[in-house]
Design a protein around this nucleic acid. Sequence first.
RNA 1: GGAGUGGUAGUUCAGUUGGUUAGAACGCUGGCCUGUCAAGCCAGAGGUCGCGGGUUCAAGUCCCGUCCGCUCCGCCA
Length: 595
Amino acid sequence: MGFIGQHKRTQGNGNYRIGQVGQQAVVYGWVQSYRDHGGVIFIDLRDRTGFVQLRFEPSHQVEAHKIANMARTEWVLAARGEVIARGDNINPKIPTGEVEILVDEIEILSEALTPPFEIKDGIDTGETTRLKYRYLDLRRPELNRNFVARSKATQITRQYFCGEHDFLELETPILMKSTPEGARDYLVPSRVHPGNFYALPQSPQQFKQLLMVSGMDRYMQICRCFRDEDLRADRQPEFTQIDLEMSFVCAEDIYEILQGYVARVWREMLGVELQLPLPRLTYTEAMDKYGCDKPDLRFDLPLTDLTEILRGRVEFRVFADVLERGGIVKALYLAQGDAFTRKDLDRTFPQEAAPFGAKGVAWARIGANGEWSGPVAKGLTDELRAEVEAKLGTAEGGLILFLADKASVVNASLGRLRLVAAERLGLLDPTKWAFAWVTDFPMFEHDEAENRFVAMHHPFTSPRLDHLDKLDTDPGSVLAQAYDLVVNGVELGGGSIRIHRSDVQKKIFSLIGLSDEEAREKFGFFLDALKYGTPPHGGIALGLDRMMMLITGSDSLRDVIAFPKTQKATCLMSESPNVVDDKQWAELHLLPRRD
RNA sequence: GGAGUGGUAGUUCAGUUGGUUAGAACGCUGGCCUGUCAAGCCAGAGGUCGCGGGUUCAAGUCCCGUCCGCUCCGCCA
């Protein structure tokens, strides 16, 4: 029986306090640092709760002192001794700084190679190295605390939904059927069925709806989802959703229960009280006013559409050309115009807008006596200037940014400039939480490449009931019972009231260009199920990873996923994906393609 | 698929107009040191300049290609 069998850990290393002086302590952990003074040796021993200073006195225990002398950074030790006060030598910078453990017995449990980077906060080691040694990076407190928080958040989630609101936590398959709509599937070849593939779930959408048909009433799952699309700082190929579905509900019921949930999470995780109900705005309002369907509402800075004022009346070529071609002109008015330099106008703004297709950013400064300067100044008549001023509410010192292009370019570009300006003006307050529901999304958007309608949310989303008639006459104008929950410019989740009638479901499939045959083949089981007594139902899915990003203040999803992928969807630590041997190819009835 | 940016000791970086033996800090190793906690002092080890090709008397440096990390666009129902 070794040390571990004989001595049970008394508490986490970071929890020792002055009140425990005189008690016996058993500690386990990693060597954070050692300081050998020739006589006395100090070792800071770390675990996930923090670290405590161990003291080794040659006059107290020769053997322990001798062993301590060998220990190095990141070795794993066990030690036993008495908690003693540090007297005059307290360290006010650490929670355990008033005490130390005078060690009677020590055991080396594991030696360690020198790590490629130091295990402490605030390192600037590149991500390549940190991802390769992810298990070491995770030892660092600032990363470690994200996962302690994540565990707490999932616990709150289960308690709220299953413990207090009658949800059942149910599991759905990971190996499922590939569907044509939406993101690219990750495929898994079947050994038993040559040429056939499973798909990993993009989300368990159909299964959770089928659970409603099954009478489960309220479903919750913290589930892994997979999408084979290119990555971003806030997008990983596998990610975790808090997936929910409820029977006999309308959108209001879902808003109600979800805002109760986020209020609970923000209160318990951050001590922040959210004001309920959460504000709402429609998709159209969001696009018009902020150029974006997930606006950051911590600040206002609205966009203003000048198309109607300018149409047919403006001679300024840049605007006139765009308007003739059916484009729009929008403006972003910045009252604090002097916060932005000529370099911003010539360089920063155009560079920020360019990726979204903007060919330029026109501007005008409002000087003394209301005089305009800048490229747009001469392009507008006195009359037009006055109308624009009235619409924007300009004043001396103001700056107007104009963007003229097709609507999608104007909204994306000016929406981006709104954020750039807000950042410059210090309006992105990290302690402020601007939640909102974005509602009334269009049912369809037109896919120009394929020249067809595609479901904007997904094809199981119910149209607004008062728009059912328009499915035949004007599908482009049909609004869906779909909603997103946004926070500070982040899409935290989205959902909808679903179609529970098989005839409506069939109609939607046909509108997005799925023939009856295809619909049968891909979703036949689902259409059949809808015919056996389907309760009206709806749901939502929240991105757990994104929520943790917000709560922990992380810049990247990688900081809240224990073992994340790189931008090329590889794991630098395990080196996946990898080639497999010929036998595996053969078993799966596959041949490598030779081009 | 596209744009940008980076890649030099274990780590973070410097490296001039192409020119001697590629430097610094931290870390690491050894020694000294009984109150440190970013310990201190002394000594030392440590390099495929991402990879491949080219130009040149000479390439970390210039050119071409390529790989990888990150950010963004497209994509992500």
